[in-house]
Design a protein around this nucleic acid. Structure first.
Lengths: 147, 147
DNA sequence: GTCTAGCTTGACGTTAACGTAAAGTGCTTG
DNA sequence: CAAGCACTTTACGTTAACGTCAAGCTAGAC
């Protein structure tokens, strides 16, 4: 429950115009931030989705890591497996020097995900209609129950 | 691969205005229809999501069962657990004589699912933007690769 | 110092959602 | 009637995604 930023002032010399966005996070911070456990975050690293630096033994996460975690969790909420997410993330990272086949494969995957999401959109639309219907009926029954 | 409706003509007497929608399905038909295995369908029954009639030992599915399976699979695609789906489905079935607390609970669950789906919609929107971005970059790199 | 909070690795446990194999039943088709 | 196919039950196996200890390191607070 205690919130303490991982980098307290530390009264260093040199606090000029430091690269503004160079903030870092501890594993616990990220865990609270996204409401997952530290175990989860370490597991994602083990699965190749994150690769934080180390200060000695301790993991240090930067902005890029945070974004990756965010995207990963979003992917999860949409039902993608960690393996799928990793595939895209890794290809994205290797993009600048990716060869043609890799890039073509990436485009395929993206097209797939797009189709997947189109379907999900449709599913959501339909499911919302169903829910509307069920709710309406439930309310009707409730109204009929004026004791 | 062979498709044969479960109720071949059977050359019975009496083929007048039979209750038009009284069609039934075998487990294999449903499986092919929704591209799941029969194991899956039996599993759903075991989990209380389906309750087909029996002709002897064999399961006979009617239109209502088919719809249930459809809704179940849609729910799955949206990331709901079988337990969640069952809860809604069972309450829906028990509705006419459901007591007030049950119905209130149902409304809660529905509100929850609604929130869930709102979030999914947002996730999809964001994810689509990400994908657009990644795809654009991939294409840029590909274009730069004119050998 | 020593105490605490938060970090580490390692390893086994757990749950959901099926897969898969074995062995038997029942219809219909040549 | 024998073959074949779709169906049945039983039961153990599998995979993903973590949970849950255990045991130990480390940096700052008192």
């Amino acid at each position: 429950m205690t919130q303490a930023p991982s980098t307290p002032p530390s009264a260093d010399t040199q606090d000029g115009p430091l690269p503004r966005q160079r903030r870092t996070y501890s594993i616990g911070e990220l865990a609270r931030m996204f409401e997952v456990t530290t175990r989860t975050i370490r597991f994602y690293e083990q699965e190749g989705l994150l690769a934080p630096e180390r200060r000695g033994q301790t993991r240090i996460y930067d902005e890029k890591d945070r974004v990756r975690l965010k995207l990963t969790l979003r992917g999860k909420r949409l039902g993608f497996s960690l393996a799928e997410i990793r595939e895209v993330v890794m290809m994205y990272d290797a993009m600048p020097d990716g060869n043609r086949r890799q890039l073509q494969r990436l485009l395929e995957i993206l097209a797939n995900k797009r189709r997947n999401m189109e379907r999900q959109l449709e599913d959501i639309r339909l499911m919302q209609l169903e829910i509307d219907d069920v709710e309406r009926r439930a309310r009707d029954v409730l109204d009929g129950l004026h004791d």
